[in-house]
Amino acid sequence: MNRQRLAGLIRKEFLQIRRDPSAIAIAFLLPVVLLFLFGYGVSLNAEHVPIGVVVAQPSPQSSSLVAGLQQSRYFQPRFYTSIQEARKAMMQRQVDGILWLRGPFTRTLLRGDTAQVGVFVNGVDANNARLVEGYLQGVWQNWLEQRANASGTRLLVPIQAEARIWFNPSLRSRDYLVPGLIAVIMTLIGALLTALVVAREWERGTMEALMASPVSMGEILLGKLIPYFLLGMGGMLFSVALAIGLFAVPLRGNFFVLLFFSALFLLAALGMGLLISSVARNQFVAGQVAIIVTFLPAFILSGFIFDIQSMPAPIAFMTHIIPARYFVTILQTIFLAGDIWPLFLGNGLALLLMALFFLGLTWKRSRKRLD
């Protein structure tokens, strides 16, 4: 390993990065686009849900219950004169649910008996249906408590639950999505940068010139790895700054711990990109393979959006070979919970083994020959 030749190769890569705006765009523009899309465009919460309200016999009691819906940020009530009209609106996807206060609702309440309320929820989107049902139950419970306080009586409930929400007390899906998105961004940065750049060298013929020079294959690989590692870490720091400053995601763990595990994951991602480039010597093919092999598994099978525990057993088992699975867990823990070292050590060891595996396999496949 000749240090002077290695320094020359690294300088060559930095000059190529400066002359090629696509590498800068992948490292810094791509995170901005993805963070804006997912940070502002994707939400696992349901707010301002259109819900139909049918009140057969208006009264002060029914008006107070409906007022709870109007004051909630989760609902946007729309009033209908009959249940048939409300059902038609739900069939046309104008509302996602119906609250039906039937005729004897007020009379039953005044008699002291149990009043029945009809609730219809559109179950096409199962996740949204569960959220709407839970929100309606919360509005109903609050209304019962307000009635009990107004009458000076105590609301008799057999079981009273006292909820304590850990790590994300505001229940903002953005706080959960943005840290996981950083793992997806770093997967794209690491794999695409190295895969496309090396494939471009093969297309332009500059790789043949390197093969004919005295540089060793190890120097070529390190000359590719070091500049794009630094560029990828710059993209990661930029993404973290956007997550904290723009999206107000809390960082409860140690920043240097985040930096260390990000470096481990980026080495694994760069190793995958170098391995792809050693197989595909065409930019288009390398880009397609990088997206299919790295981005899609990181997006679908890492736990970024879809819960791994809810997946079928064979698919959940397959997630163990996805590096992003371990990094998503580390990121969400560092951002939302803090430094939990028993969790970090197991996932960090998996990232280290994967980085060694991909870089070692790339080293083994790389030879100074053109076939």
Rank of each mutant, 00 (worst) to 15 (best):
N2L: 04
A199C: 09
S63T: 10
L359E: 05
L237T: 01
R5C: 02
L349I: 15
I182L: 15
T106K: 03
A56Y: 04
V42S: 01
L270K: 06
A243V: 04
W143I: 00
W100A: 10
L193K: 07
T114K: 15
W140A: 13
K368A: 13
L110H: 11
P31Y: 03
R78F: 02
P158K: 11
V178T: 06
A148P: 05
S82N: 08
N128L: 14
N282D: 15
P158D: 10
F335I: 00
G338C: 03
F317D: 09
S173G: 12
L188R: 00
Q283I: 01
W341S: 01
A163F: 11
L349W: 12
Q76L: 02
P312M: 11
N168I: 08
L356K: 04
V215W: 06
G273Q: 07
V119A: 14
L35W: 04
N254K: 06
L225P: 07
I291D: 03
F255N: 01
F357A: 15
A25C: 04
K364V: 10
A67M: 03
F265I: 03
V285K: 11
S62K: 09
L275H: 08
I159V: 11
G348N: 10
L34Y: 05
I24G: 04
R93D: 11
L192H: 13
V95W: 02
L136S: 02
I185T: 10
F295G: 05
F14P: 11
Q283G: 02
R11L: 14
P60A: 04
V53L: 06
I291T: 15
I226Q: 10
R87Q: 15
L270S: 10
P297V: 02
V197R: 15
T362W: 09
V215N: 09
D371N: 15
F299Y: 14
M272S: 06
S82Y: 05
A269Y: 05
G218D: 01
V178R: 07
A150I: 00
L37C: 12
V285P: 03
L69E: 08
Y74Q: 13
A243W: 00
L353D: 07
S63Q: 15
L345G: 06
P31W: 03
G123A: 15
A241G: 03
L225N: 05
F14Q: 08
W140C: 01
A150M: 12
V198G: 10
E133G: 09
I334L: 15
N149R: 15
E208K: 14
A269W: 04
L230W: 11
P227M: 08
V197Q: 15
L6G: 12
L264F: 14
P169S: 08
R73A: 13
G205I: 06
A191D: 03
T333H: 06
P227K: 10
D113Y: 08
G360I: 00
F299N: 09
P21L: 02
Q61A: 14
A324E: 03
S278F: 05
R172H: 13
N45G: 14
G123V: 07
L359R: 05
M217E: 13
P312D: 05
M217D: 11
Q116D: 06
V95Y: 02
F306K: 04
Q146E: 12
R147D: 07
G253V: 01
P104H: 12
R172V: 00
